[in-house]
Amino acid sequence: MSVLQALDVGLAFLVFAVAAWTVFAPGPFAATVGYVVYGLLLSLVWIRLFAVDVALTEAAIGSGVTGVLLIGAAARLRGAETTPAEEALTGLTRLFAAGLCLLVAAALAAVVLLLPDQGPTLAPQSMERLPETGLGNPVTAVLIAFRSFDTMLEKVVLVLGVVGVWSLAADRYWGGAPGEARAERPEPTLAFFAQVLAPIGILVGVHVFWVGADEPGGAFQGGAILAAMWMIVMMARLTEAPQASAFWLRLALIAGPAVFLAAGVAGAVVAGGFFAYPPGLAKPLILFIETFMTFTIAVTLPMLVAGPPRREPRR
């Protein structure tokens, strides 16, 4: 397996080099592009760790959607790139910071090396209780059954993220659509591109969500791909961003956590405990919840990237 090892070392070196580029790159834009590359390479690392679900999530959210968020921000921040001299750290502070970071990294590396090769694990217990859920993918089972409380609350975090981003709107724009109104006609190439890519992407997104029950994939990953497709269609101006006050949008944004929460509470009545699934009904119920979660993620991520409302609300 020496070829594989060489590949691993090469990959590790590449990841580190690109990460260093994003920290030391000359300008914010160069740094964000470096980050997109970095996210991609990281997906490879996750494949090497046999964490395919994570690789998908990293590719879709960590690299894809976050990359677009940061590229957009870097483009808008042009002109703010110069650092006033008084804000730059002095050489001594830099040295001190570097020493501190080196210390943290070294301590962490030492502990990582000390971890036993066969570590403690919950894999057997997950597999033991996997049949109760009717699922074939243990990662999905952890997310939607064993630790469903985490997942539901994390969906609430996403809702709060939207509330927080929208809270930055100017008062007169409250309830309006995010993004600046653009009078110009859409770029024809972009429009064509979006028309070709979106249907394929939607298909892939739904596929990734659907296989998530038994194979790597699931609500997060599928939802993120769907989100990317909605964003590209909006970028190409084939459709308008919705108004922040639209009831259907609010409903879409909370549907995932709301259905999840309702199912969790219903469990207390039907299955004898909060977030318990009635035996036999677990799989259909899980797929039902996941469907809403996928939909909500597909709507939430574009709203988080689009930023606060920036147009006067239409009545």
Partner: peptide
């Protein structure tokens, strides 16, 4: 013990409802 879930779930539901109904 099931009482413990309620002080978390009820305000969480309140957040979702408040945002929806506005």
């Amino acid at each position: 013990g099931s009482l413990l879930a309620l002080p978390i779930l009820v305000p969480a539901a309140g957040v979702l409802l408040s945002f929806l109904l506005g």
